[in-house]
Design a binder for these strands. Structure first.
Lengths: 368, 368
DNA sequence: CATGTTCCCAAAACCGTTTTGGGACTATTC
DNA sequence: GAATAGTCCCAAAACGGTTTTGGGAACATG
């Protein structure tokens, strides 16, 4: 009988600290009435209060002032839920993080969020961060957010060449921006110039005199890896070197992969003298592998990483790595989002520049 | 009676992907009517649908099944806004991050969020992450979230001995849990055993033979620093050493501070031979300062850090540091929150154990 | 047969805004 | 003076769920 009503469980609800029963009641009364209380106190109608507070221009200046004062005096805060229901918009942008990120690439991620939040909150939008346990769950997280109308737009990263999340969202015309590109590129995105990263890494090492440059790529299911590979090959070609497919090996973000690959590469015939690594973690793992083989990274073998993670500056030798202004990505993302939410449906595709932070790991190539 | 016919209707409704206009219209109709469409299609009343879908027990099992099927077939998703308005609850927990965190302590922070989100989402709660540009803005962020009814409860960290956020929230009886303690400790919290960190750091270094142990504390406005200091002093005392106030110096989380302090400490009279550092960043900064003075950290001077940030394992010498299971903190936090939201108003105060990860920076004390 | 109990359901009320469609009044134009 | 335009305001109707109200049907009990 009581079991039917969940409210029954919360019986001893407000047994708080003091005896402010009167105060509580007064407070509640004030809060309960909401916009109606303001209307009453200001001697105008509810709709006029709403229009005045929302900046419509068919309200007399004097009336508006009075309403604003009254609202302020009563401590009136419009109910988010009610406005959301009526307007059918949430004033919320949802950012989806996939779990594997959180383990290693944290700073990358939060740097972006920081700039993004700044831009959005300045316009009254809230930023909501949701997490997906695995990549496969991301589509479900997105589905839930969209279907339950929890946000006005989405942002997510780690795009793949063919991305089901994008297909799904485009199908129902839901606004979103990605961090990273796709094969079709039919949508707005922000991305760093990954092609340049691959290209310039190769060219720099070639310019340093290396003839055999390996490429330990990031996971190839991600689109940015493809760009990186393309750029790398182009850089090799531009430098007049021959591309050796056997020196282009896919790695993963777990620490061991770089080490394994390096072990195989440098115990086999014709090892490279330099390595372009798709990611700092791969580079660090590779350095450890080299050291284990008695090869000195930064002396015998040159390495260039990518992402410029905080760790890069602390490992020995310190890792030369491609960096980018994460805050700028966030800001750009935020501004694009505001435009989109403001009704501008044009597709914006933004490539953020990257720059090489030179440290100790990229040494000149020796003989041969 | 009518329990036989609806099946046919449902299957008909199910047919849907192909046609454009018809499907669109049908879809819109279905979405527009929401729960009423489900009720109509299932041949029951709106309230019955609501009760069935919300798990009340006064609904016939057969009826419930039929309603669930119908809702599924129609792709019905209850409007979050409407439910929120009527129930006056958001099913959302807000986690407040202050800006200085995002720079360095990312992993700490995200590790907790990860566990927290897992627990909350399993019970249908959403986790919202909001950021505050500075500590001072945090109270405003909180105020906004609470006053606009954007969440049912709050979580925040970096507690101070006297914390205005807590005062404000307690004043209006709004549910929250902190990460970290306060002077009064009148609320639920999760915290690591910071007293132990200080104590055991001191004791370990003393046991290694050090007689003069310095303490580079984290910022003292935070409550955990106080615990750490207390613990340290107790550890010194337990080891039969004399406590030297001149060797207890407050540092900040910017990188330079540790270096400055160390420079002063080790160019002055009677320098310590070991340092307990309130934070890994302080420790790393201190190590750099030592190296600049020609003093070898991990050989001439022992250091112990705290937090076990990812960097700790990569600096040379690798930093010995106190660690904790961040996921466990998040899980605990989540479970406490669920209990609180479920109506259990009791205060829970939970101390999470920490453990020392021994690396290279804590060396035995030399002569003297 | 009268009465009580137990389950279930339809209809209406409600949550706190925004939006709609005028209404009243004044100013301007023919 | 009537018609038109402009300004400012209002009452009532959404928005889409959940909760309450009130009662009917089936079954058990005295």
């Amino acid at each position: 009988m009581f079991s039917t009503s969940p409210a029954a469980i919360i019986t001893h609800w407000c047994e708080g600290q003091g005896e402010d029963v009167t105060d509580q009641a007064a407070d509640n009364q004030g809060q309960r009435s909401g916009i109606r209380a303001v209307a009453k106190a200001a001697g105008v109608s509810v709709s006029t209060v709403s229009r005045a507070l929302n900046g419509y221009d068919d309200v007399n200046a004097e009336t508006r002032r009075k309403i604003e004062e009254t609202a302020e005096a009563l401590g009136y805060k419009p109910s988010y839920a009610a406005a959301m229901l009526r307007r059918n918009q949430t004033n919320t942008v949802t950012f989806v993080v996939s779990k594997p990120w959180t383990k290693y690439v944290d700073p990358y991620f939060l740097g972006i969020l920081d700039g993004l939040e700044m831009v959005l909150s300045a316009q009254g939008y809230d930023l909501q961060v949701v997490m997906a346990r695995e990549f496969e769950k991301e589509i479900e997280v997105i589905r839930r957010a969209v279907e339950r109308n929890r946000c006005d737009a989405l942002i997510f990263a780690r795009t793949r060449p063919e991305d089901e999340r994008i297909d799904w969202l485009e199908e129902r015309g839901f606004p979103f921006i990605t961090i990273g590109q796709t094969q079709r590129n039919s949508h707005s995105f922000v991305d760093r110039d990954q092609h340049k990263v691959g290209r310039e890494s190769a060219r720099r090492l070639a310019a340093l005199g290396h003839k055999h440059i390996g490429h330990l790529t990031s996971p190839q299911r991600y689109n940015y890896t493809r760009n990186s590979i393309e750029g790398f090959r182009q850089g090799i070609e531009m430098s007049g070197l021959g591309f050796d497919p056997a020196h282009e090996i896919e790695c993963f973000l777990s620490r061991r992969t770089g080490e394994e690959v390096v072990t195989e590469l440098f115990t086999g015939p014709n090892p490279p003298t330099a390595l372009v690594c798709g990611n700092d973690l791969i580079a660090i793992s590779a350095m450890e592998g080299l050291q284990r083989l008695g090869i000195r990274p930064g002396v015998d073998v040159a390495l260039i990483g990518c992402d410029d993670m905080p760790i890069a500056a602390y490992v020995r030798p310190a890792l030369t790595s491609f960096s980018q202004d994460l805050g700028a990505i966030g800001l750009r993302l935020g501004r694009m989002m505001l435009a989109r939410l403001g009704g501008d449906n044009s597709i914006v595709q933004d490539i953020i520049d990257t720059f090489l932070v030179i440290r100790e790991s990229d040494c000149p190539g020796g003989a041969t």
